[in-house]
Design a protein around this nucleic acid. Structure first.
Length: 646
RNA sequence: CGGGGUGUAGCGCAGCUUGGUAGCGCGUUUGACUGGGGGUCAAAAGGUCGUGGGUUCAAAUCCCGCCACCCCGACCA
């Protein structure tokens, strides 16, 4: 049998054994410490801590939270704060090791940075403000404030600033795997949203975006490394295009574990393979012309005190998809990185109206792209002062609001909202809506002025929308859990912190950066969400805490224990990690616990099989009782099973 | 941050309305029987009832403050 059976099917780097040589009952130190080895570990249940319980803590709801708690992997110590017990730590180390190997293979270099960071470090990038309450802060005896690092862009940029002095030292990719902190408003779902969690973050530094040594090259290498990592972990995942978010930067991908219980929605095109998260997802061509004929006389309806579009629609007898939702944004300045002329003619507008159908959601990023302006949801007070009846705004306001009307307001209309037929809309005065809204009649002249009104894709994509990449195909919605995220950062942090380097032409330039994160603890939880059944966890072989669980039927039978240890020694010699359940428990208890903790293969040593010179073999994912396998065939069977579980 | 809810033994819960110093299941310990899917019987250990104050002869129970935690929403590089 191949020594690197568990790395088959991929370009395997040198394998020195997951955790280095381990000394167990079956492994004399003299043997295991001699040399590099892929010898597995053998542990006994009674010598470790696996506190399984019949019932989960009352606060556990998601499958990963319930099962990791019940199976003795984690314990909650505070809101969003967990102990990682021995089984969990073994999983986390295996995930980390895979991450480490792939990051190093992709040119990364591991280091460790402080968790406690002087708050001044964050002042430079204003993240002490933009991160806000999400940033954990501690005060020392002198009153100095430190942040507990939620990510490490600032310290690593600071480090490189002080230690890299020549473009010849770039590119550089530094990564760390360590505990990070975020004061989440609402920690939930166990390990999926914690306040303290383990994360791998990598940061790359470049002089150029393009070409050898450039950001794009590193980004692509990271993309491939992430694909390798999650594939090796045995996860079913999708890489999706994503908005780069408040962290800044130009491009990003999220790696999502496919799982119905996931919090995030992603959209995929089944034909082209295009995949993106809801915020980023484009839609294919849609048609709307604003040319529809009136459906009747504009009728005002009194709609007092109704909280949302659905309630208003119900009250008026109009479906949300026949209502216009007009959202008021305020302009924050020209948008960076948006090509084309901004709207509004010579003067920068103050307000942007975005109109979508009542059943659709406005997408701020798309509004920004369509108008050429950075926008935020309008401050309610300021908007009211400018004449907007917030909650009851209609598209008519494009030519009415603001100081002197025209020019102060521009409007982007989503294609679906521009269709003909019946529309209901706000009426620009509180507690009133209108029926039979007609674009041409109600908005008038301004509607045809491309400086002020534009048709554009300004809403979130939904399942059923036309694919942007394949004619005739429809987008499908899937659920997922984000476990990795890669960004092209650009110069945001290097400029803020002053990381500039002289290039070959003796020009001082800010260093171009990328950053690449993987939630290690979240990956473990996501894997459980993805792979479990009613009885417990079902680990993929690559990140299971042990590959094989040997259940000893009679803990006090020398014959049983000998058999177990013999099998364990063979398995360990073949590189598999083995846990021997040597507890004085009834068989039923042991089988229940075996299913619960989810080791991929269970080998049972008992009288029945021993009588045939065999043990009982059962893969966790298989139903039924298992089958007898001769001692000399056990290793091959287990190895094959662990591989197929991969 | 808004809304809802919960704090009683290691875990899951009852008791609170109508005050009288705490109970159930699981787990744990001891013994016996048992022995291939959370077994049976017997005995036992284990609780400042989140916390501070108040009312009362008497508070888990009623009143006030605080704290912690959970759920829904907002938020979520």
């Amino acid at each position: 049998m191949s020594r690197d059976w568990f790395t088959a099917g991929r370009a395997a780097p040198l394998w020195f054994g997951c955790f280095g040589p381990t000394i167990g009952p079956m492994q004399p130190a003299t043997q295991s410490s001699l040399s590099r080895t892929n010898r597995g570990t053998v542990h006994h249940w009674r010598q470790t801590l696996i506190p399984t319980t019949r019932e989960a803590p009352a606060d556990a709801e998601s499958p990963s939270h319930v099962l990791l708690s019940r199976a003795g992997y984690i314990r909650r110590l505070g809101a969003g704060i967990y102990d990682y017990l021995p089984l969990a730590w073994r999983v986390l180390r295996k995930v980390s090791q895979i991450v480490r190997e792939e990051m190093e293979a992709a040119g990364g270099s591991e280091l460790l940075l402080p968790a406690m960071l002087p708050i001044e470090l964050y002042a430079g990038t204003k993240r002490d403000v933009t991160y806000g309450d999400l940033l954990f802060k501690v005060t020392d005896r002198k009153g100095a404030v430190s942040a507990l690092g939620p990510t490490h862009e600032e310290p690593v940029t600071e480090l490189v600033k002080g230690s890299v002095t020549s473009y010849k030292q770039l590119p550089l990719n530094l990564f760390q795997i360590q505990t990070k902190y975020r004061d989440e408003a609402r920690p939930r779902s166990g390990l999926l949203r914690c306040r303290e969690f383990i994360m791998k973050d990598a940061y790359s530094f470049h002089m150029e975006v393009e070409g050898t040594g450039g950001l794009n090259e590193a980004y692509d290498a990271m993309y491939r490394a992430y694909t390798n990592i999650f594939t090796r972990c045995g996860l079913s995942f999708t890489a999706v295009e994503a908005e780069s978010g408040p962290i800044g930067g130009s491009a990003s991908h999220e790696f999502m574990v496919n799982c119905e219980s996931g919090e995030d929605t992603i959209l995929v095109c089944p034909v082209s393979g295009y995949a993106a998260n809801v915020e980023k997802c484009e839609t294919g061509a849609r048609h709307g012309t604003l040319d529809g004929a009136p459906t009747g006389a504009l009728t005002e309806v009194h709609t007092p005190g109704l909280p949302g579009i659905h309630e208003v629609g119900k009250f008026m007898g109009v479906k949300p998809e026949r209502m216009l939702k007009t959202i008021v944004f305020q302009v924050e300045g020209r948008a960076a990185g948006v090509s084309g002329e901004p709207m509004g003619g010579p003067h920068e507008p103050k307000w942007v109206l975005a109109v979508v159908r009542g059943d659709h959601d406005v997408n701020e990023g798309k509004v920004k792209a369509a108008t050429g302006y950075a926008v935020t949801l309008a401050d309610e007070k300021a908007a009211r002062a400018a004449g907007f009846a917030i909650g009851y705004v209609s598209p008519r306001m494009v030519s009415r609001a603001g100081e002197g009307g025209g020019g102060a307001v521009v409007m982007v209309v989503d294609h679906d909202a521009a269709a003909g037929g019946f529309w209901a809309s706000g009426s620009d005065k509180p507690d009133h809506h209108v029926k039979h809204f007609n674009w041409g009649r109600e908005v008038g002249e301004t509607l045809r002025d491309p400086r002020y009104v534009k048709l554009a894709d300004v809403r979130n994509a939904m399942a059923g929308d036309p694919s942007p990449r394949a004619e005739g195909a429809k987008l499908e919605a899937r659920r997922g859990i984000e476990v990795g995220h890669i960004f092209k950062l650009g110069t945001k942090y290097s400029e803020a912190i002053g990381l500039t380097i002289l290039d070959q032409a003796q020009q001082k330039r800010p260093v171009i950066m990328g950053c690449y994160g993987i939630g290690v603890t979240r990956t473990m939880a996501a894997c459980v969400e993805m792979s479990h059944d009613a009885d417990g966890i079902i680990w993929p072989g690559a990140i299971a805490p042990y590959h094989v669980l040997i259940t000893v039927m009679k803990h006090d039978s020398e014959q049983h224990l000998d058999g177990a240890r013999r099998v364990a020694a063979d398995l360990a010699a073949a590189g598999m990690d083995v846990l021997i359940d040597d507890r004085d428990e009834r068989p039923g208890v042991k089988f229940k616990d075996a299913d619960l903790i989810g080791i991929p293969v269970r080998v049972t040593v008992g009288d029945k099989a021993l009588a045939e010179g065999a043990v009982e073999f059962k893969a966790r994912k298989d139903k039924g009782k298992g089958e007898n396998v001769k001692f000399e065939e056990v290793v091959a069977r287990c190895a094959a099973a662990v591989e197929t579980v991969l």
